[in-house]
């Protein structure tokens, strides 16, 4: 087992002071909606995984499917399926 360090960030508190005007979580995006990722609220392991897959602030996303199974997004030409819980933690600026 690897040791856990005391100061290693736990699930990061969502910054209250952050201005969220106009930002909506991926899970609330309509099908075929497009937007730009602005903020990811997740633990270290997941953030690293998402960043490695190209889900990062500033990346353009398109929602291909949004159903009870989860959300399928298109990012940089790659299709990625996310569970609803994770999709509700990725905030996007919707492009109209």
């Amino acid at each position: 087992m690897r040791k856990r360090f005391g100061w290693t960030r736990k699930l990061q508190e969502f910054p209250k002071e952050k201005h969220l005007g106009g930002l909506i979580p991926l899970i609330n995006m309509p099908k075929n909606g497009e937007g730009i990722v602005r903020y990811i609220w997740a633990g270290r392991g997941i953030i690293n995984r998402l960043l490695g897959m190209g889900i990062r602030p500033g990346a353009k996303v398109k929602v291909l499917e949004n159903s009870m199974y989860g959300v399928v997004i298109l990012i940089n030409g790659t299709k990625i399926g996310l569970c609803p819980r994770l999709a509700s933690r990725i905030y996007v600026e919707q492009a109209w």
Binding site: I80, G81, L82, C83, L86
Partner: peptide, 10 residues
């Protein structure tokens, strides 16, 4: 349970 992310290859 680890969150679910999967790449859907063509």
């Amino acid at each position: 349970i680890s969150p679910f992310i999967v790449e859907m290859p063509p």
